[in-house]
């Protein structure tokens, strides 16, 4: 395991706390009608998100999926425009055109979320192709779930990345359910082992609630990609605490009895807090991180609340580069 500086460890915990606080607040705002539509939270998956995003460099690219608030946050995106986007405000990171399912912050390399499962995987692959052709040293990472692991486009993309040695990381966030469907009931074999068929390394991070385990595995894949040694498939075992989307009331019948409670005991934020304490972080500092994250989310909500909704006059903006082409 790499020796990480105090500031890096601190930042990991802060980003996990940000994601937790952001999504907990977003969940409440959906239920109170302050966010239109719904959201899909990453609560419970923070280690996997932050371990992967912090293994990337500032200029590196990533694409996300429907459960993707955490990805730009993990990559360092400011919270205000993200929250305003969820609320459909003009100051949203996508000017209120995308919403929860389509967050993107190109300033941090976040090339966008996709509401279509698996659909954004080739987008990251294309970013990796750009890096290869332009020889700019950037790598790209595609986040996708265990559900998307059964989409054909993943394998088209893995094949292309493999044959072209693209600087690419395929990161499977295996939270074990596609909505209500247990992954093992619809998935033949082990996802990470599918990499072998494409001649690339396939790694399964069993301790996916341990941010350092994820960080180490993805860092190794990033180093391979950056060295020109091609793509890697990383499967991270994790767990989502909430329903597939906020507002669903499926109950827990589709989960094994006691399963959620067992995962709660290895909560990524609590686990890492214990680790940080063992590394000399004081309780004051750790409590301070929690307070910082909550204050940032408060400020993000205040920013969103104070922001206007987009005016109808901008509805056609960005359909094309020129306004004339919009009929």
């Amino acid at each position: 395991m790499a020796e990480l500086a105090h500031d890096t460890l601190r930042e990991m915990q802060l980003r996990m706390l940000r994601i937790r606080a952001f999504d907990e607040r977003a969940s409440k705002m959906v239920k109170r009608g302050h966010i239109p539509g719904t959201v899909h939270t990453s609560i419970g998956q923070e280690a996997q998100v932050v371990g992967a995003t912090m293994a990337l460099g500032a200029g590196d690219y990533m694409s996300g999926n429907h459960r993707s608030h955490g990805h730009p946050i993990g990559k360092g995106s400011p919270l205000g425009p993200l929250m305003a986007e969820l609320a459909g405000k003009a100051t949203g990171v996508c000017k209120g055109k995308g919403g929860s399912l389509h967050l993107a912050d190109f300033a941090v390399g976040s090339l966008g979320e996709s509401g279509i499962v698996g659909s954004s995987i080739p987008i990251a692959n294309g970013a990796a192709l750009s890096s290869k052709v332009l020889n700019n040293g950037k790598v790209a990472l595609a986040f996708f779930g265990d559900g998307a692991a059964n989409q054909g486009v993943l394998y088209e993309s893995m094949n292309m990345a493999g044959v072209w040695d693209l600087p690419m990381i395929f990161l499977c966030e295996n939270n074990q359910y596609a909505l209500s469907t247990p992954a093992h009931t619809v998935t033949s074999g082990v996802i990470s082992q599918r990499a072998a068929g494409f001649g690339m390394p396939g790694i399964r991070v069993e301790e996916g609630q341990d941010v350092l385990a994820v960080y180490d595995a993805v860092s190794e894949a990033v180093a391979r990609a950056r060295a020109g040694d091609g793509p890697t498939l990383v499967e991270v075992m994790t767990y989502r605490y909430n329903e597939h989307s906020e507002g669903l009331r499926l109950g827990t019948d589709y989960r094994d009895a006691g399963e959620r409670e067992a995962w709660l005991k290895k909560d990524p934020i609590i686990l890492f807090r214990h680790y940080l304490a063992s590394q000399g972080f004081s309780d004051d500092e750790l409590d301070g991180l929690q307070a910082t994250a909550l204050a940032e989310v408060d400020a993000a909500v205040a920013f969103s609340d104070a922001s206007p909704y987009p005016d109808l006059s901008v509805a056609f903006d960005d359909l094309y580069t020129d306004k004339e082409s919009a009929a």
């Binding site: 294309g126 990796a128 332009l134 700019n136 088209e156 993309s157």
Partner: peptide, 22 residues
């Protein structure tokens, strides 16, 4: 570049490449 016969992967990769400078 010759591509494999993978239209969905090709079109998506071209989109991603276009979004990042090609």
């Amino acid at each position: 570049r010759n591509t494999p016969i993978s239209e969905e992967g090709i079109v998506g990769a071209a989109a991603g490449a276009a979004m990042t400078g090609l």
